[in-house]
Structures are given as C-alpha cells and as structure tokens.
Simulated scan of single mutants.
Amino acid sequence: MLTPNIWKKSSFSGGGQGDACVEVAHRRTRIAVRDSKSPAQGTLSFPSSVFIPFVEALKRDREVG
C-alpha cells in the first residue's frame, strides 16, 4: 500500500536515468498520478476504488502478453 502523500516512482521506469515513467501518491480516498519528468506541471487523480483494479489489470495483461 502507498504511504499517504509520498510520491513513489513506477518500478517499470524504462531505460536511461529511469525518468520515463509516472509517479503515484495516495491521497486519502484518491490516487494522484504525475509525470516524473515534469512533476510541477500538475497531477491527475482517480478514486482508489477505480485505480487499484486498473493497475491490477495492467499487471495481469503484462504477465499474459
């Protein structure tokens, strides 16, 4: 589980310096997402009840694909 208000970089961050990815942070009832290369440009946020199943589906698709 994410620690509230702490940004965590994706473990799948591409090559190079690892800055080709997104970061996520837990915000009480929502999950915030931002671009790791431009964190000051803003964030998107999603209800936890939607975001968590979305990530789980991505993981399943990656394992099958």
Rank of each mutant, 00 (worst) to 15 (best):
V50R: 07
W7E: 12
A25K: 09
R28P: 05
V24I: 15
P4I: 08
S36R: 05
A40C: 02
G18Y: 11
T3Q: 14
H26F: 03
K8H: 13
V55H: 01
K9V: 01
F12Q: 00
M1D: 01
D19G: 09
T43H: 12
F12K: 02
D19R: 13
R62T: 08
D35K: 13
G14F: 09
Q41G: 08
K59C: 12
G42C: 01
A20P: 03
A57E: 15
A57S: 13
M1T: 06
V64H: 15
V33T: 14
P47V: 00
L2H: 04
K9G: 04
S36G: 07
D19T: 12
D35G: 06
I31D: 04
G42A: 02
G18W: 09
F51N: 00
H26V: 05
T29Y: 10
R34V: 00
G16L: 09
I6W: 04
S45A: 12
E23Y: 08
A40M: 02
S49D: 09
M1K: 07
S13V: 01
H26N: 14
E23S: 00
G15F: 07
S38A: 13
K37V: 05
C21Y: 01
T3H: 13
G15T: 08
S48H: 07
S11A: 04
G18H: 01
G65T: 14
Q41S: 08
A32Y: 01
S48T: 15
S38L: 05
G16R: 07
D35Y: 14
S45Y: 02
A25N: 05
V33R: 08
T29W: 13
A20G: 12
I31Q: 06
A57T: 12
G65I: 06
F46R: 00
S45R: 04
K8M: 15
F46V: 10
S38R: 05
R27S: 11
V24E: 05
F46N: 02
E63V: 13
A32V: 06
V33Y: 03
V50I: 10
G16A: 08
F51P: 02
G42F: 03
F12V: 07
R30Y: 15
S48W: 03
G18N: 00
L44P: 03
V64D: 02
F46G: 07
T3W: 04
P47T: 06
A25L: 09
F51M: 01
D19N: 14
T29H: 10
R30E: 11
P4N: 14
C21K: 07
V22L: 14
G16N: 11
S49V: 13
D61P: 00
K37G: 01
S48Y: 07
E56C: 11
Q17D: 03
F54A: 15
